[in-house]
Every structure is written in C-alpha cells, then in structure tokens.
Computed example of a mutant assay.
Amino acid sequence: MDRDAALKTIRQTVDPLGEALHSLHMSGTFYCRSELTAPWGVDLPAMPHCLMFHVVSQGEAWVTVPDADPCHLSAGDIALLPHGEGHQLTHAIGAPSVDLFDLPREELGDRYERIITGGGGAVTNLICGAVTFSHPVAQQVIGMLPKLMNLRASVPGNAWIHDSLRFITAEAENLRPGGDTIITRFSDILVIQAIRAWIDHDPSAQQGWLGALRDPQIGRAIAMVHRDPVRDWNLQSLADTAAMSRSAFAAAFQEKVGETPMHYVRRWRMGLAESWLREGQATVAEIADRLGYQSEAAFSRAFKSMRGVSPGSLRKGANATATAPTGK
C-alpha cells in the first residue's frame, strides 16, 4: 500500500477526536434546581476535580469568576466551569451574594436538591450540576479547557439547546422514576456539545494535544495507544501505525504533543492505572499484571516516579473515601 492509500485508510477508520469526546461520560453527578427572584446572589465554593455547569431555563443571570470577565446568561444559555473554580451567580453585576451552604434547601434525593430564595422580583430558574470524569481521555480534554465557557442558545445551530432544556426541566420538576438518569444523559449532551463548540471555534483548540488528535497520522497513533495501552509499544510500532518513518514520526509527535511518543505511552498507562486505583475495583498486583509489568514492585516504582505517589497509598485513600460516612 502506498502512502496516499495508507493515509486514506487512516482517515476512514479512526476518529481520534470523536473517540476522545466519547469518553466524556459523567460520574459523581450532583444536581440542583434553583428558583430565584431578584435581588439574589450566590457564592459557590471551589470544587476541585469537578466540572460545574449552570443552565438558565428562565430569566437571566451573571457568572463572575476571578480573573475573568463577567458572563451574562439569558434563557437557554449554558455556562461551564471545567476546573471547578469558586465563583458567583447573581441577578446583576456586583449584587450582594450569600454562601451557597447558608441558603435553605430541599433535598429531593441523594444527588438532587432544590433551592428557593430571593427578594420577590424578576424570576430566574437555573439547573446546576457538579460532575466528574474518571476516564483519562476525559481528564485530558477537560484539563485543556478555559476556566469559563459559555454556549449561547441564540447562536445559529444551537436550537437543540431549547429542546434539551425542555426535557431536563420537565424531569427536574416531576421527578418521575428514571428522571435522574434522563437528566444525567441530557447533561452529558449539553456538556459535550459545549466542548465541541469550543473546539470548533477557539484557536487554542487547534494546538497541542487536541490539535494532534486532528492530525491524520499523529492522531491515529494516539488513538491506537488509547485503544490498546498494554500493547508492547515502541517507537517503530507507533511510527508504523502512523505510516511514517521513525525519525519523522518522533519529530512530528514531539512538535505537536510536546513530549516524546514513549513518554506519552508511559504517562497514559499511569493515568489509566490511577483511574483503576481510584475506582477500587482492582488490586495493585492486578493492575501491574494488566499493564504488562513483570512485578508489582516494578509497577509501583514506575507509578510513583510518574504520579508522585505510590499506588498502594492512592488505592487506600480511594477506599477510605468510598467507605467514610457522609453527614448532612
């Protein structure tokens, strides 16, 4: 097969960016439906390792994040805070705000609550969420996003937002059986669409790792590492996957991704290992074997060198978090 035919095959069989977005499945989801009347204002604390989002189903709101311009939201607009930074939601810029945990709330389920507050003026209804993403691809995507993103329903091509909001609002108000699942699925769609819109239009999304995913050759090599991380990859096999020479592939990968191919492979494997350890569904020895290490000790050394903590202590911490009692 000549080079042009190989590149055509690559384009037809691999969609690295699509596969990356496919990994954006939410976990650890918590929702709040807020019914607010002006004047109102809420201080939301930082939630590290969470993506937070706010959807305005009625009225308007302002989102203020430190070191960023205030963002105005109208009905149907979505604001995403990918890194869980503390911020304010208010009816107007500079309006007084109250700590979220000082507001009266109605617990409607383990992962769902409602807040009703305000001064009796103009009405704003919000659906807000805090979610996490456990898959390493998702974490890599989220890590590249700006601190505040806004998807406007008024932009041509975003009419689907209103349809999605109708479903989410109806489920949030009625709380029928399975409603929590429906809210989660539609929230998946809202978040992924917001990220797609950013990728399509923001120049920074054309660079670095995301830009490399768009490259038909480098993107294929990255996608194959994601699909088969335990394969005995080396520079030659990765270059063969990309239909490039070793030297050309190594140089192009370094330029586009910012690290050597083999460093990326090792870092990716350790990211998977960390995800498995946090899930607590495999022992350190089982993960070492799954990733092809000859011994648990060899894996532990490699993991600590790459992640800065031993796999055993990380797994113990995840187990302690999972079994700790929660208070209301």
Rank of each mutant, 00 (worst) to 15 (best):
D2R: 05
A5P: 00
A6D: 07
A6Q: 14
Q12R: 13
E19M: 13
L21E: 03
L21G: 03
L24N: 10
H25E: 11
G28V: 06
Y31L: 10
S34G: 06
W40Q: 01
D43T: 02
A46T: 03
Q58I: 07
G59M: 08
G59L: 11
E60R: 12
A61M: 11
W62M: 05
V63E: 07
D67L: 01
P70I: 01
L73I: 04
A75G: 09
I78E: 12
I78G: 02
E85D: 09
Q88F: 01
L89G: 00
T90D: 02
A92D: 04
I93Y: 00
I93S: 04
I93L: 11
D99K: 02
D102F: 01
L108H: 04
L108I: 08
D110M: 04
D110L: 12
R114K: 12
I115H: 01
I115N: 00
I116M: 13
G121E: 00
G121I: 04
V123G: 00
T124G: 07
T124I: 13
F133Y: 15
P136H: 13
A138S: 15
Q140P: 03
V141H: 01
G143V: 00
L148P: 04
L151K: 08
V155E: 15
G157D: 06
I161E: 01
D163K: 08
D163P: 00
L165N: 15
I168L: 14
T169F: 12
T169Q: 15
E173F: 08
T181S: 08
T181H: 03
T184F: 09
F186H: 12
L190V: 13
V191E: 07
V191I: 15
V191P: 06
Q193P: 02
A197G: 05
H201S: 13
H201W: 02
G208H: 03
Q217V: 05
I222T: 12
A223C: 15
P229D: 07
R231E: 11
R231N: 07
D232M: 10
D240G: 06
A243L: 06
R246M: 04
S247V: 14
F249V: 06
A250P: 05
A251W: 05
Q254F: 08
Q254K: 10
E255Q: 11
E259Q: 11
T260M: 09
R266V: 02
R267P: 10
W268S: 09
E274G: 11
L277N: 10
G280H: 09
A285F: 04
A285S: 08
E286D: 09
A288K: 02
Q294S: 14
S295G: 05
A298C: 07
M306L: 14
M306D: 15
R307N: 13
G308R: 07
S310I: 14
G317F: 03
A322Y: 09
